[in-house]
Design a binder for these strands. Sequence first.
DNA 1: GCGATCAGCGGCACG
DNA 2: CGTGCCGTTGATCGC
Lengths: 249, 249
Amino acid sequence: MDFLSAKSVIDSALDKGFLCVVVGNCSVKYFGRAASKLSEGDRLLVIKPDGTFLVHQRSKMTAINYQGPGARVSTQLAENLVVTARREKPKEEIVVSFNSVQFAGAFEMHDDSKLKVFGSERQLSDLLMQDLHLIEKGLVPIKQESDVKKGTIDILAEDSKKRLVVIELKRRTAGLDAVTQLNRYARELRERKGVQVRGILCSPSITPNALAMLEKEGLEYFKLDYEVSNPSAKIKGLQKKQKGLEDYC
Amino acid sequence: MDFLSAKSVIDSALDKGFLCVVVGNCSVKYFGRAASKLSEGDRLLVIKPDGTFLVHQRSKMTAINYQGPGARVSTQLAENLVVTARREKPKEEIVVSFNSVQFAGAFEMHDDSKLKVFGSERQLSDLLMQDLHLIEKGLVPIKQESDVKKGTIDILAEDSKKRLVVIELKRRTAGLDAVTQLNRYARELRERKGVQVRGILCSPSITPNALAMLEKEGLEYFKLDYEVSNPSAKIKGLQKKQKGLEDYC
DNA sequence: GCGATCAGCGGCACG
DNA sequence: CGTGCCGTTGATCGC
């Protein structure tokens, strides 16, 4: 496909607010928050009506170079067909220089649908709020998504002995970061309120290092079994893995 | 474009290891780590030779449904043209059901080029290793990327008073997580070695909450100015923002 | 293979 | 707007 035709397809797409797809051999330069260079190769370029700009290689899921919504795209024709995406704040620029173009197409796309997701952490949190007794008898919810200075507590509750309980929920294997996060919240509450505060981590699994740190910090772990049977999620069970404070008192 | 032609384009692309692009009206179902439903709308489907499977809406950077490298893609023709991507471990499936197809194309793509990035944290770390005196006179590097039980320390150094110094580097604004991370490393070393350990956070900026926590934990902050003038990055300066331990002794 | 962390993370929701 | 954090995070590198 000749450059002139390709340019006119792209320009027309930009003008009409169509999605544009270009396949061709190109090199790519990026400068902005970081900088990058990619030498010649066959790539797929996708330009969306909202300014989204994606350069894909033949492998991998993520675009090798990109620009988010809000970028302004323009084309220049010289030796090569050059497509530029610019964006302010942060000031960034991608320049794609095509040596050849295999294909360029513009497509009008209507789409008002929104994705419905099942099994998100938020959904699991909602379910858990209704079923805190699965963790422990007498545990009652106080607040969900409770903002404190050092972050947001997934679930704040109170146990049968009126102790504050901070619950951190993870939808997948919990690592060191999850324990650190929980610890941060528990410490802040302890210090701020001057009372005993329990911290409970709930996740389908936990890494050995994370479990070790959790135990050393006096936090508790509950294994969370759930399934995402469409069109919702369901908590199948909660199993204590570590002895709580009461075992040491 | 009729379904039969579209199917044959896709099948041929799958067979030959070409990249395949399809534009059409479809609905999408996903089930795996989570589950999702997306009702009818015009979408861009990209299938890469490595199994990467991307469903894009007209807006936003990220694919609305996707599957990473390794997925096995197949097509079925019935009422609709159905394209399925399956993957084991985790067991996942995406089903795209096309009501109509505007375009389907297959493209051979040769590309051996690898992206070269400038201004990554690792690169900044390399630079900082050579210039620890920018932080403080007498600070000498011990080890880069030092693995400890609770993670990986960016830079481990020793100050003029032979104290261990843990340096955590962030290429962008540091938040609570960065402070928590640094604190984790410093605490582990303190405990394991039974010695005094300083912790220094270096980043272009830091959020107020993070700075407050950092100061409360007795850690130190250095503002890191750098620029990514192609083809490399360069540290422009380091500025102390908080008094260190020596000011309290 | 799992584990930990970075990423030009992106996106969202809340202050 | 910034701040915090989730994400079907993905990708990389080390063990």
